[in-house]
Write a protein that binds this DNA or RNA. Structure first.
Length: 509
RNA sequence: GGCCCCUUCGUCUAGCGGCCUAGGAUGCCACCCUUUCAAGGUGGAGACACGGGUUCGAGUCCCGUAGGGGCUACCA
């Protein structure tokens, strides 16, 4: 690399000479939300783009909200999405531990330092006092900010609980640089003295993330735009601690599909075009049968784009081009319909071996005994027909339902448009012996024979073919009929046709 | 309410003052192909929120209005 390129790049990410290090810092509050994963992905993309490190840190400073098993879920989501971690609770690393509840001393030390330097103070306000202030107007009124030291000592000696609050400048402006939006400015007068250390000795996010990001040498922070309002607070704390700040990028949030409100995991009433519930949690993407590479492509296409009017691109290519300053600052409605399309594109490209491996468990979970040889023959017919792995069940389950498991379709499926029970039975009755007598059961042979049969019998091709399809697959939509019958085998196909015919006979009487 | 951020087709977006009679994708609708459903092909409807400026020239810069979103906890 030439010297000018090196300079250009350092200007681009504007991190001085610091190595690029980003982190994903979720709270262990349960299943991972797709919004959080997107933040992780953007940070990871940036880290990989610049050959830096990507760190996982668990922010469990709120014991009340901590949910057991969350860390496993976080790792499961990240592993599935293909976001690899360089340092974290599982990987270890030189700046650990990577779980905040194991770093309490660090926060307390910094809090004490802030206290000593006059940047913070002990606040003895009780819950009742706080509630009253909130009711009266705009939050905490700084009543303990200028409490004489003696009084504070006395209250503490009395055993009164206290928190440590940051002394926010009372006037002036705080401005910061956001990689996505540029300069942002805030009036200090409108800001509060945030709690840094809670009465239980645990830090709040405001203190903890700063202490950790400093000690962990984090160079760039990607976080949701929800944090923008507290950005000035963080800037002031960084300054008070005397540490060099990382660069910040406040990522736009995902809105509900209708554009109203933040995408929530609670309100899953939103349905896609096909009426399916919209996936929001990481495991829902896995369960719904989306491919991780499709989800990566999908996620990185919201608020950022590859360029060249190119919608599908590999993660490796995205890494080559990703840039935080190119991220769109506007929030986006969750374009879930596009994921179905992208996923179908990816499924159509996956190797048949891999696709078979992905489909097998889905089928088995649905209760089908999956014959490997048959599965391998079915897969080629499926690739352009699946929007998600799940679709294999309604689309191709019938392939694995022989030997007594197959039931004749109901008449509303069996009887084609402009047909009735009598005509349908007639078609079946005529076709069965012909198919039974076929020496060559290959699709082309069947096709030709049935075309001739249609011609001879006076039915339209569609009427004959459609009836056969319904009888053999039990479905209105299916892979190609003759290919399907070929895979099913002559005997099983004939058996199903007879089953259908018999079901009609019963109906007629 | 206060503070902050945002605003191009229904949706995701391209556009960083003239290349825009605004491009792509998705979704939708036609048609073609066709053994259904898909896939694929072709075509169609569909947007610069509004009002002021700045400028020879504004989707692109500035201000205002409106709308949307976020924050406003000893949660993150």
């Amino acid at each position: 690399m030439s010297e000018s390129e090196i300079m250009g790049e350092s200007e681009l990410n504007d991190s001085g000479n610091r190595p690029v290090r980003l982190r994903y810092a979720p709270s262990p509050t349960g299943p991972q939300h797709i919004g959080g994963l997107r933040s992780a992905l953007f940070g990871w993309l940036f880290a990989r783009r610049h050959g830096g490190q990507f760190i996982l840190r668990i922010e469990d400073t709120d014991q009340k909200r901590s949910v057991p098993g969350s860390m496993d879920m976080i790792y499961e989501s990240l592993d599935w999405l293909g976001i690899d971690i360089d340092e974290g609770p599982r990987e270890g690393g030189e700046y650990g531990p990577y779980i905040q509840s194991q770093r309490l001393e660090l926060y307390q030390t910094s809090a004490r330092q802030l206290l000593e330097r006059g940047h913070a103070y002990k606040c003895f306000a009780t819950a009742a006092e706080l509630a009253e202030m909130r009711k009266a107007g705009r939050g905490y009124d700084r009543r303990y900010r200028d409490l004489p030291g003696d009084d504070a000592d006395r209250l503490e000696a009395e055993g009164r609980q206290f928190v440590i609050r940051f002394k926010m400048p009372l006037s002036g402006k705080t401005h910061g640089e956001d990689l996505i939006r540029g300069r942002v400015e805030f009036d200090n007068a409108g800001l509060q003295d945030a709690v840094l250390l809670k009465s239980d000795g645990f830090p709040t996010y405001h203190l903890a993330h700063i202490v950790d990001d400093h000690h962990m040498r984090v160079s760039h922070i990607t976080r949701a735009v929800e944090w923008l309002p507290s950005f000035p607070l963080h800037i002031q704390v960084w300054r008070a601690l005397g540490w060099e700040m990382p660069r910040f990028a406040h990522l736009p949030v995902l809105l509900n599909p209708n554009g109203k409100g933040k995408l929530s995991k609670r309100k899953q009433q939103f349905a896609g075009a096909d009426g399916k519930a919209v996936p929001v949690l990481a495991h829902e993407f896995m369960e719904a049968g989306y491919l991780p590479e499709a989800v990566r492509n999908f996620l990185s296409n919201i608020g950022w784009n590859y360029g060249d009017d190119q919608e599908t691109f590999s993660t490796a290519d995205a890494i080559q081009r990703f840039d935080l300053s190119a991220v769109n600052p506007a929030n986006s409605a969750y374009p879930i319909a596009k994921l179905d399309w992208l996923n179908s594109q990816y499924i159509a490209q996956v190797s048949e071996t891999r696709l078979a491996g992905l489909l097998r468990p889905v089928l088995e979970e649905a209760g089908y005994a999956v014959d490997e040889r048959r599965l391998r023959r079915v897969v080629p017919l499926l690739r352009v027909r699946l929007k998600s792995l799940r679709d294999v069940v309604p689309m191709a389950g019938f392939f694995f339902a022989d030997w007594g498991g197959f039931r004749a379709p109901t008449t509303d499926i069996l009887i084609q448009r402009k047909m009735d029970a009598v005509k349908t039975a007639q078609v079946l009755k005529g076709a069965i012996p012909i198919l039974e007598a076929l020496d060559d059961f290959a699709p082309d042979s069947q096709h030709e024979t049935m075309r001739n049969y249609a011609k001879a019998s006076g039915f339209k091709n569609g009427q004959v073919f459609g009836t056969l399809r319904a009888a053999v697959t039990g479905q209105k939509a299916s892979p190609p009929t003759f290919e399907s019958m070929d895979i099913l085998g002559q005997a099983e196909s004939i058996r199903r046709l007879k089953l259908a015919l018999a079901s009609l006979a019963t109906k007629e009487t």
